[in-house]
Amino acid sequence: MRRYEAVVIGASAGGLDALKTLLTHLPNDFSLPIAVVLHLHRNTKGELINVLQKGTRLNVNYAQDKKRIQKGYLYIAPPDYHLLIEDDKTLSLSVDEPVNYSRPSIDVLFESASDAFREHVIGIILTGANRDGSMGLKRIKERGGTAIVENPQSAEYSEMPLAAIAETQSDYILDVDEIARKIYELLGGEKCKTF
């Protein structure tokens, strides 16, 4: 059984609902840190945090620069900043140019996560109408991490999952609720509770 240290998730159009579904299906004792890039309007304020917080026991917050990532926390990339993970497992923000027309960009988070965690990370691409995340997921896979993509047929927008699947041999292609179960299984939760 591989030891995982973190989960990174990228989602775009339709992503908020998908993310909520994913979170509500995670078991109560799930505690790996999760870092999320959700493409947001730059003026998005705090409501998003409250919306996501309702469905999970994890502490949901916008990522803060230089904070060490911790178990039991879910970090959202703040609007208009890239989110990166440093090798010392702290969070970094940047205002570098948009990547794939996006800031935050999923590729930027995933690539840094693959450097920081190598094979100990699970990368997940959810619904979206662009191609961000495909290169980042490829990199996670190349470094021995685990790549999961939302089933394009059930995803609200299929373009992003399809781009990710085209770019790399994903380990699992699943509906959102199944992704939650798969994560639990990967972490060794064979007892598999009812969710």
Binding site: L84, D87, S94, S112
Partner: peptide, 8 residues
């Protein structure tokens, strides 16, 4: 400097 951005 923070390394992750430098690396990129």
């Amino acid at each position: 400097y923070a390394k992750a951005s430098i690396k990129r």
